[in-house]
Amino acid sequence: MPRLPRNTMPRDVWVLSLVALLVAIGFGVLVPVLPVFARSFKVTSFQVGAVVSAFALARLLMGPFCGRLNRAIGERVALGIGIGVVALSSAGAGLSQSYLQLLVLRGIGGLGSAMFSVASMSLLLASASPLQRGRASALYSGGFLIGGMAGPAVGGLLAAVSIRAPFFFYAGTLVLAGGAGLLLLTHRDLTPTGETKPEAFSFADAWGHARYQVACAANFATGWQSQGARSTLVPILVVEVLDRPTSWTGIAFAVAAVVQALVLQPAGRLVDVWGRRPMLITGLVTCALSSALIPFAPNIGWLVVILCAFSAGSAIMSPAPTALVGDVIGSNGGTPVAVFQMSSDLGSIIGPLAAGALADHFPLPVAFGIGAALMAGIGCWSALALRHHGRSSDQ
């Protein structure tokens, strides 16, 4: 196995990971609460899915404008403004008196989230060198995951006090995240060691590379299954099928997040050492098999085990798509990064709607199985499309 050089991870990678942690703690608080809160307005499973999708739909619509907007005002400033918009919309959602108000406010939050996510990903790719991309992506994702470990459990406890309280908690963590980004991120443009000054790199240039196509497809499938069947239907499965309180959803997601966090850092290193392809394929197949088993869990214990397997698979594959994008575009940001983010948003829009609609008309295994087949299919395509590519862009 080749050894990686002992180079120090840039400061901005650590700062962005802190921002991700604070954002994820708040977002995780909503995971066990949002579907149940939407359900309290006496709506269908499809409409519950629409609330989850509204956030991603707004992100998708905003995505095409983020590249130029972020470069015009500066990605650090765009990150702070975007997080501020999400904070205000979250507080407003907590005050919602109708399903329509909740739906609209969640959509407004998605606009700010698009600004934040494109800016943070651009800064991450600009900060890490080619041989750091897997580990930098894992560290950044680890911030989200550690927040995901604490968030759902906290959300379950807050929901026992008030179903609205998690929305205000989320707004508070977002204020802290925006402040950290504005105060701690560097003001200068970063060019990773060993790379030249970034040049214009269009979406058409990026799309001509199989690695970029695979990264977008993997992002789409992950958005579909994670935000679709997993986030939309598991909370309902716990309450309505397994007959457990909402707090158990938070506990199950928190335990699964611990597993994902433990696997993520070693996986990021292996993405840099073994290569993007084997880790991506292994993770996609693991996610496909485990998610297909979720609706067959006979009790909460087995559900936790299966969710842990899904989380491990997600950790194995998640650093690879970001590293693949970095291999193609280098330290350039802009539209290619926005489209990469949008591919996940598109999956996060279609997935919850499809899962909700299928759950309204078919048994739960159908909704989970379609997403699982999608992930498995993209895993097989990745095996073929990436068979000639090495560890990084210079190979």
Rank of each mutant, 00 (worst) to 15 (best):
L353E: 12
G151V: 03
L124E: 03
V285T: 05
G84V: 06
A359R: 02
V273R: 14
G313K: 07
G377T: 00
A218I: 02
A309R: 03
V305S: 11
L374M: 13
Q395K: 13
L190N: 07
A180G: 09
S311G: 08
A165Y: 00
V175L: 15
R106D: 07
A357G: 09
A50K: 01
L16D: 00
G371M: 10
A180V: 09
L242S: 04
W224R: 12
T193V: 10
S291G: 10
L262R: 05
P198F: 02
L30E: 07
W14Q: 08
A359L: 06
F169A: 12
A87M: 10
L384V: 06
E195K: 05
T186R: 14
V304W: 06
V241P: 00
W274H: 07
L157D: 06
A138K: 01
V285M: 14
L183Q: 03
Q132M: 07
L237M: 13
G84F: 08
G283W: 07
L111P: 04
S247K: 15
V305E: 14
P298W: 11
G172D: 08
I251F: 15
R387N: 13
A160P: 00
G369P: 00
W14K: 09
S127T: 00
G228A: 04
P235V: 04
G143W: 03
L100Y: 09
V175R: 15
P245A: 11
L158W: 01
L61F: 13
T8C: 10
P365H: 13
M279L: 04
L18T: 01
H389Y: 15
A72F: 12
A355Q: 07
G74L: 06
N70C: 09
D345N: 12
